[in-house]
Simulated assay, not measured.
Amino acid sequence: MQRAKILVACQDRSARQRLAETFRFRYQTVAVDDGWLALHLVNTTAFEAMVIAERLDSLSGLDVAVSVRESGRNAHVPIMLVARAITPVIREMIERGVVDRCVAEGVETGAFLFEFNSMCGERAERAWAALDADVSRVLGTARRTYSHVFAASTADVPFDAKLLDEVARQLVGAIVDGRISAVMQALQGHDDYTFVHSLSVAAVLAFFGRQIGIREGDLCLMAQAGFAHDFGKRVMPHAVLYKPGPLDTAQMVVIRRHAAAAGQILRCSPGIPAEVINVAERHHERLDGTGYPNGLVGAQIDDLSAVAAIGDVFSALVDNRCYKPGYAPEEALRMLGDMAGPHLEPNYVKTFTQVMHDTGFASWVAPPREA
């Protein structure tokens, strides 16, 4: 499968190069500096999204955006405008739907990616309405719950634990009814990495649990744990979470705080099962004590957290991220096997790998790969 194309129209050559580098693992970037050339491409090429600078050669970015909305092929593509300032004219353009988002010139890369991913994610969410009603319901409930948790954690108030339970019940229902492959396929079109990863881990854990005979009530617990395990990332700085490259030592210290932060968010919300909190705090612990945040060893790590660690690692390996392309499912399972023993519980890894092989579920979790 070919990567989708995005149009980047910007006068600044170095900015075009930075954007191409930022998007290299998810999109094929078509970059131009001229407004008329951008319009020619709009009329001849299908794009997934557009990033258009306010200042362009021969034609302004706003004029390009207006013409895009009048085009047939790309009229509904999300457009991000990059401007010196958000003026009343630009605000009007946003209200009219001519552009979807606007960011300031020179915005930090992490903040830019957060806005871009949010914009494209909203487009994916609108497309869910055309899916099978049950599939759309699972995705919509999960997204609303994720947004609710983000708003609650930002405001430092508890979130409604019933929402987390409802996500789990709907997800387990999709697994039991055989709709989970459709859920996972639609999920891969969303651009919020952490949301996609969280729902993927929830599906992986619940599917794995059902295959090894776990009763339905406990499957819901596994799904809750998977969905909530990375809630702490919602309060991490965008510059760290969306950095399109390896984190430095100081940034690693920051990102490792997400496990404890997730535990704090969950503990502040009445009705969250203790097992779910444990997974949030322990999914990065490793058998040999090299994990974080507490360096737990062996039997100090409960069974559900040990299984969740496997699901988390597998999903992270196959995911496309802003700093790496995803591995093929077979390669990810091989790498998972290499971690068995010192880091991950070997018997669980063996059973997990067999289930993923025998059912083909691994390919449902992985995003489509470039041909």
Rank of each mutant, 00 (worst) to 15 (best):
D165P: 00
W364E: 02
K162S: 14
E108I: 06
P246I: 05
T45S: 11
D192T: 09
V167E: 02
A366Y: 04
Q185S: 12
V149N: 06
V82F: 01
R123C: 04
V68E: 03
N43G: 12
G121L: 01
G97I: 05
L296C: 12
G189P: 04
T44R: 14
S153K: 14
D192Y: 05
A280S: 14
L221D: 10
R123A: 13
S147D: 13
A75N: 08
Q17C: 07
D12M: 00
A261T: 00
L205N: 11
V42Y: 07
C10F: 08
M80C: 13
A46D: 13
Q11S: 10
I79D: 03
V66M: 08
D303Y: 02
L219C: 13
G106D: 11
E275M: 13
R210Y: 04
V98T: 15
A152L: 10
M335E: 01
D288T: 11
S363L: 09
Y193S: 11
I52M: 06
L62E: 13
C120D: 00
Q188W: 05
R334M: 07
E115P: 00
H357C: 10
F159T: 00
Y292L: 10
F314A: 03
I214A: 13
R334C: 00
R69S: 01
S67V: 01
R13E: 12
R123G: 08
G289E: 11
V51E: 08
R210E: 15
H357K: 07
A308H: 08
S269N: 04
N278R: 15
A53K: 01
A133Y: 03
D156T: 14
L19G: 02
Q300D: 14
A111Y: 07
F112Q: 05
A239C: 05
D191P: 01
E330C: 04
K162F: 05
A130Q: 10
D34T: 05
A15M: 13
R369D: 06
N294G: 02
L187I: 06
G263Y: 12
L41C: 09
R16H: 05
A49H: 04
G140W: 01
N74Y: 09
G271I: 12
A280I: 03
K5A: 13
